[in-house]
Amino acid sequence: MEFVISKFNYWIYITLMMIGFYAMMRKRNLVKKLVGMNIFQTAIILYFISTAAKKGATIPIMEHGHGEAVHAVHAAQYVNPLPHVLMLTAIVVLVSTFGVALAIIIMIHRKYKTLEEDEILELTK
């Protein structure tokens, strides 16, 4: 139990990721698959952000700004900014993947007039 509670952020991200994974693999509707994909990617973003968090730490901005950082910076006092920066890029990737996938779904719908995978497979036979 201690193991679960002390690492609860990881458990949450794994649960979310598996929900997304299940939707991507098992759902027959293409939009549901896409929603699953989005949950899957968001779970990873949550994971990255949670690794940056520290108890009692503040935002990573130096009080006196440029070049006048005379006081030593203690990493323990600041939240690690790097995962946030990485995730900004990952969010851009997520959004564009989602956009491309939606565009493809529109193409599929124009072609087959349905978004159920089994019906499409029936039509393409």
Partner: peptide, 11 residues
């Protein structure tokens, strides 16, 4: 079948 193939590739 290109759009569907592409969609599977996306996933």
């Amino acid at each position: 079948g290109a759009p569907l193939a592409s969609f599977r590739y996306v996933i």
